[in-house]
Design a protein around this nucleic acid. Structure first.
Lengths: 148, 148
DNA sequence: CCGGTATACTTCCATATGCAAGTAATTAGG
DNA sequence: CCTAATTACTTGCATATGGAAGTATACCGG
């Protein structure tokens, strides 16, 4: 492949598939959560007052609003999040991280960080990892609520 | 985020979501194909005798064998691929790229390359793109049939 | 204040996907 | 050879997801 842009894109797609596969297994067995659920909780954990509207969550997770509705439902049954209306705007239904949810996401994030470190454990230097993170950050820049 | 490994992983997930969204629209309207279908055809195009077993395709695309079966069916109806049995091993059902499929994938790949270049058009230097491609390549290394 | 438009959310429907089970064919061991 | 295990593929089922349509609420121009 002689076209670096194209090569970068193709490899990014492949790397993503590998990482998702790798993380899904570990997370599910450790905390009973899917990767996307952990990301949802992480967004809540870093949001002001630990709450976000479903629309905001959808944008941050790159999914549709209907998916957020359906992802929040089981988390609400597990008491990891609660639902709260906005006093000013009755259309808004915030997803709010509970104390239990905060604990869970802290643990899940710790597991994720370990798994992330494992990805680079062999044959990567710290500067290389930092460079990769920096370059990838420029591909996601301009979005609100960047987690990393 | 102070952990570079974790940051890199999170950003990779986000960048992937953005790129898939971006490419799906353009490809679909231009060639009537989904991104994953183009990748399937690209793998065939670079394979010896332009054919791969469904199992091999599944590994290269990071999907299950059943998904390959179902992705191949519509492409076969469109005469972009054909099905051929292995003369030595009757279990193998190769997906073979037709001439029409070869033409289609060449065009679709050209579109993809343009879209990939667009991703980096602003604020990226050639060495930066090359570095990104190189680093991402190390995350996908060790897989057979790397496209990029 | 009123009607039209925009926004937030939910639900219905169609599609995509993985896994488990089933079928067919090959290989390995005795 | 024969049987058991393995491999390749397909299909049924359950789940996940996006988009369209529906509902409720808020905003805006007059």
């Amino acid at each position: 492949m002689t076209n670096p842009s194209f090569s970068a894109v193709l490899r990014l797609l492949g790397a993503n598939a590998r990482l998702e596969e790798r993380f899904s297994g570990g997370l599910g067995s450790l905390h009973g959560l899917a990767l996307k659920e952990v990301l949802l909780l992480m967004h809540l954990a870093q949001a002001p007052r630990r709450r976000l509207s479903r629309i905001d969550l959808a944008k941050r997770l790159y999914v549709s609003p209907s998916t957020v509705t359906r992802m929040a439902a089981p988390l609400e049954k597990l008491k990891m999040v609660s639902r709260e209306a906005d006093p000013r705007d009755a259309r808004l239904a915030y997803v709010v991280l509970t104390e239990a949810g905060l604990e869970l996401v802290a643990n899940a994030q710790a597991s994720l960080e370990i798994m992330a470190a494992d990805v680079f454990r062999d044959r990567w230097t710290q500067p290389e990892i930092a460079t990769l993170a920096d370059l990838l950050g420029r591909l996601t820049a301009g979005q609100p609520g960047d987690l990393g």
